[in-house]
Simulated scan of single mutants.
Amino acid sequence: MSDTTAERPRSAAQEARIDLSHGSGGRAMRDLVNDVFLSAFANPALAALEDQARIPLADLCVAGDRLAFTTDSYVVDPLFFPGGDIGELAVNGTVNDLAVSGAVPLYLSCGVILEEGFALADLRRIVESMARAAEAAGVQIVTGDTKVVPKGAADKLFIHTSGVGAIPAGVEIAAGRARPGDRILVNGFIGDHGVAILAARGDLALQVPIESDTRPLNGLVRALLDACPQVHCLRDATRGGLATVLNEFAESAGVCMEFEEAAIPVRDEVRGVSEILGLDPLYYANEGVLVAIVPESCADRALAAMRAHPAGAQAASIGEVTAEPAGRVVMRSGFGGGRIVDMLIGEQLPRIC
């Protein structure tokens, strides 16, 4: 073997950990991109390796008459948790932000900030998880960026994703469209993601058999719209949970969101953890829960369509939209009383997504 061959830099595939050279723009960075990202996200738009993805406008126009564009960052701690990891979360979260506008999600970008010393095996695991999630959601990751910062300048790995989709003609979904008489629907159990992350952190020595609900919701939204094209409002209940979403709807539309406490789908394990810690499941982050405001005329069809979909098997009608008190959320208890449910000041659990 010649001296030249012996001195050749090892490829990313041979390295055990990320170092600063992997963000330098040179051979090490190229090897990292090729070995880890391109092999997992393979598609024609990404394979061109231009500084931007080039998407034919005709492809977007076939799917709809308006563009939906969203962006989000993911800093969840820990990176791996029961039911998922930061990579799957990043893809599903961005897909869902597009889906709740009524859009058909099509293309994602992926920006990764890596801390020096991060294990390459963990990066591969996360990227492969992203690839599987993208395939399941029917989207392509078509462009991206990688940066490496010195040890201590970040916490292991952060991911930034943006997404593009097309909104079909005739779909008009917005927070301000809620009207008195509308029904409030949710697609399943609330609080699973928040409790799964809390348990995974290990700070409280909790042994809770709960997994994150992270999943793509675009298929569920399509089934819902097929059954009830007049859906007024949709939003995924991530940070701030169900209570925050309902407050956003109430404020935007100038109406009251009134729901029954007993109608909220919550697992017994989530209720138990909440009672122990003095936390409220209404504010837990979710990664696979959406809230829909639909006209009374199609509410039963909408609920049946949600329950027929795997992501909505536990869907429930939890209340209705009323005129007063405007801009408020009211929870009715089993004893007939009601209380105002406000937005949180701050956050129950930091770095939840």
Results as ranks from 00 to 15, higher is better:
Ser73Trp: 11
Val266Arg: 09
Glu116Thr: 03
Asp35Glu: 10
Ile18Cys: 01
Leu185Tyr: 07
Val142Gly: 01
Ala131Lys: 06
Glu135Trp: 06
Ala40Ile: 04
Glu248Gln: 12
Ser73Leu: 09
Ala42Arg: 04
Ala316Val: 05
Asp31Gln: 09
Cys298His: 13
Ala68Ile: 05
Pro56Arg: 02
Ile167Thr: 10
Ser129Met: 13
Pro105Asp: 04
Gly163Asn: 03
Leu282Pro: 03
Leu60Ile: 02
Lys147His: 06
Glu7Gln: 11
Thr322Asn: 09
Arg222Pro: 04
Met257Thr: 00
Ala90Gln: 03
Gln140Phe: 01
Thr71Ser: 14
Arg215Ser: 14
Gly188Tyr: 14
Cys233Val: 13
Ala200Met: 13
Val273Tyr: 13
Leu282Asp: 02
Gly138Pro: 05
Gly84Phe: 07
Ala178Leu: 09
Ile126Ser: 08
Ala121Tyr: 04
Ile352Asn: 12
Ala63Arg: 07
Val186Phe: 12
Arg239Glu: 15
Leu279Cys: 11
Asp280Asn: 15
Thr244Ala: 12
Ala313Tyr: 11
Phe41Tyr: 14
Asp122Arg: 10
Gln140Arg: 08
Ala302Ser: 06
Arg8His: 07
Leu79Gln: 06
Thr71Asn: 14
Ala169Asp: 07
His193Cys: 02
Arg10Gln: 15
Ala178Gly: 12
Ala316Gly: 06
Asp203Ser: 02
Pro265Phe: 02
Ala153Cys: 10
Arg215Ile: 12
Thr244Tyr: 15
Glu211Thr: 14
Asp51Val: 00
Asp236Gly: 07
Val91Ile: 13
Ala153Asn: 15
Arg125Thr: 10
Tyr283Trp: 12
Arg183Lys: 11
Gly312Ser: 06
Asn218Gly: 02
Asn187Ile: 03
Ser11His: 08
Val221Trp: 02
Arg239Gly: 06
Ser333Met: 05
Val221Pro: 00
Ser11Gln: 08
Cys256Thr: 13
Phe81Trp: 07
